[in-house]
Amino acid sequence: MGFKLLSKLLVYLTASIMAIASPLAFSVDSSGEYPTVSEIPVGEVRLYQIADGVWSHIATQSFDGAVYPSNGLIVRDGDELLLIDTAWGAKNTAALLAEIEKQIGLPVTRAVSTHFHDDRVGGVDVLRAAGVATYASPSTRRLAEVEGNEIPTHSLEGLSSSGDAVRFGPVELFYPGAAHSTDNLIVYVPSASVLYGGCAIYELSRTSAGNVADADLAEWPTSIERIQQHYPEAQFVIPGHGLPGGLDLLKHTTNVVKAHTNRSVVE
C-alpha cells in the first residue's frame, strides 16, 4: 500500500471513529477524501466538511520552486461564519470567499490569524475590503508590521502568557507558548472536538522541520505538551499544512522538532 493511500485511509478511519463516538456532533463529509496538494491548482481553494458547521479550507501556493498546501478553518456561528487564517495570499483568499459563498452561503463576518507569517495573514486586506472584521493577538499584529505583512485590524486580548485561553464565538483560542513562531495560536472547536494546530503542528508525513527561522526550538516541545494537557479530548487535529489526523500529530511534531534540534547540535 502506497504512503499517500495509507495517509488518506488514516484520515478516513479517524473521521469514521469520530462519527461513531459522537453521532450528534459529527456529520463528516462523505463526498470524498481530504484534498491534497496535487489536486488543488494554485489560485483555487477546496472546502472539506469535518463536522456539522465545521470545515477546513485548503489552498496551495508556490514557494521556492515548489507547491505547498495550506489549511485553515471555518466555523459556523449562528447565521454567520468565523474564518481562521487566510488562504495564503490575496488571490487565494478572494477564491476562498467565493467558494464559501458557493458552498455554504453564509457571510464571513470575523477572521482570526493564528500567527504573523504570510500563509496566515496574506489576504487580510481582501477580507477587510469584503467587510470582514480581522483579528490577531497584539504580538501577531506587531510582528506582521515588522515583517511588512498585512496586519489584522483588531487585537485579541488575554493571550499574552503561555497557557492563556479565551473564548471567541464558537471557538476557544489558546496560546501554548512559542513553537513554530513566538505568537502562534491554537484554535479548538469544543462542539466538535476539532483542534486546529496551525503551523505549530505537523502532518504525519512530514519528517523535516522546514521553516524554523522564527521558531523557538527549545520551547516548542513544552508548548505541545500544554496543548495535549489542555485538549486531551480532541479527536480531529488539523495541521497548518497537509493531512489531518488525531492527537498523534502532536507527538510526531515533537519528535521531528527534537530530531532537528539534535542534528543542529551535532553539526
Rank of each mutant, 00 (worst) to 15 (best):
I151K: 15
A136Y: 01
I100W: 00
G131Y: 15
I201T: 03
L250G: 10
V37W: 12
I84S: 09
D125G: 12
E233C: 06
V28W: 03
L10K: 06
Q228I: 07
I201F: 00
A133S: 02
I186W: 11
I186C: 14
P232I: 11
L173M: 07
P35Y: 08
G198E: 04
P69S: 02
P221M: 11
E219N: 00
N184T: 13
Q49T: 07
A59S: 11
S16Y: 06
K251Q: 08
S208M: 11
Q228E: 06
L249S: 12
V256H: 01
K8G: 06
A59M: 11
Q49C: 03
L204C: 15
S70Q: 11
N184S: 09
T261Q: 04
T109V: 11
T261H: 10
L6C: 07
W88F: 11
G245E: 05
Q235G: 10
E145K: 14
A21K: 11
K4A: 14
N262T: 11
V265A: 08
T86F: 02
S62F: 02
I151L: 13
A136C: 02
V37M: 06
V146I: 02
S160P: 07
L217F: 01
A136R: 04
L5W: 06
N184V: 13
G2K: 09
G163E: 08
K102E: 05
A130E: 00
A15R: 03
V75K: 14
H230R: 07
L47N: 13
Y202I: 09
E44K: 04
E147T: 01
G123I: 01
L185W: 04
P23R: 10
T114G: 06
I224Y: 11
H117M: 00
P170S: 06
E39W: 05
H57K: 02
E101W: 14
P107G: 09
A259D: 15
D214H: 09
A95L: 12
G169M: 13
G65P: 02
S7P: 01
I227A: 08
G89H: 10
I50K: 09
I100Q: 01
L10M: 15
V75R: 05
F174W: 11
S155Y: 08
T222Q: 13
V67I: 10
V11F: 02
N262E: 06
G177H: 00
G240N: 05
F116I: 00
V256D: 14
K8T: 03
E267F: 06
V126W: 11
E39G: 07
G123R: 01
D29M: 04
E145Y: 12
S27L: 04
E225W: 08
T14P: 06
V121N: 15
S70L: 11
T153W: 10
P221T: 13
H252V: 06
M18I: 04
L173D: 02
R141N: 01
T60A: 04
H154T: 00
K258D: 12
S38I: 14
L10Y: 09
A213H: 13
T134K: 01
T182P: 03
L159G: 09
S22Y: 04
H241K: 03
G131V: 02
T60H: 04
R128F: 13
G158R: 09
T14H: 04
P41M: 12
K91D: 13
D77A: 02
G240F: 03
S264W: 15
W88A: 13
D79T: 05
G158Q: 04
S160L: 12
F63R: 03
V212I: 05
S7K: 06
A209L: 06
H57C: 02
P23F: 08
L97H: 00
G197S: 10
H241C: 01
T140S: 03
F174V: 11
L173S: 03
P232M: 10
Y48D: 07
G122H: 01
S22K: 02
L6D: 07
N92W: 12
P232G: 09
H154M: 01
D77K: 04
L83C: 11
V257G: 11
P107M: 04
L159C: 15
L96D: 00
K102I: 07
S160V: 07
Y202D: 03
H241Q: 01
V266R: 06
G177E: 01
P239R: 04
T109S: 08
D85G: 01
L185P: 00
E172M: 10
A90P: 13
L83E: 13
W88H: 02
Y231S: 10
V124K: 12
A136P: 01
A213P: 12
S181H: 01
L250P: 12
P221N: 15
I100L: 12
G122Q: 03
S191V: 08
D216R: 08
P221R: 12
A129W: 14
L217G: 09
Y135Q: 09
R110L: 14
T109F: 09
K8H: 06
E101A: 13
T109P: 11
W55G: 05
G210F: 15
A129D: 15
D248L: 09
S155R: 02
A130P: 02
A218G: 09
L127N: 00
A209F: 06
S208C: 08
S62Q: 04
E80I: 10
I227M: 07
Y231V: 09
R110Q: 08
P176V: 10
L204N: 15
A215I: 11
D85R: 00
A234H: 02
N71S: 05
I100R: 00
S205E: 15
P138I: 15
L173N: 10
L247P: 02
Y188P: 01
R226G: 10
S155N: 00
I84T: 10
I100N: 00
I50Y: 10
P190L: 08
V265R: 06
R76P: 11
R226L: 02
G65V: 06
S139M: 06
K4L: 05
G72P: 01
F63N: 14
T14C: 10
L250E: 12
A87S: 10
D77L: 02
E267K: 03
Q103W: 09
G43E: 04
L143G: 03
L24R: 04
T14R: 08
P232Y: 10
G32T: 07
N92M: 14
L185G: 02
V45I: 13
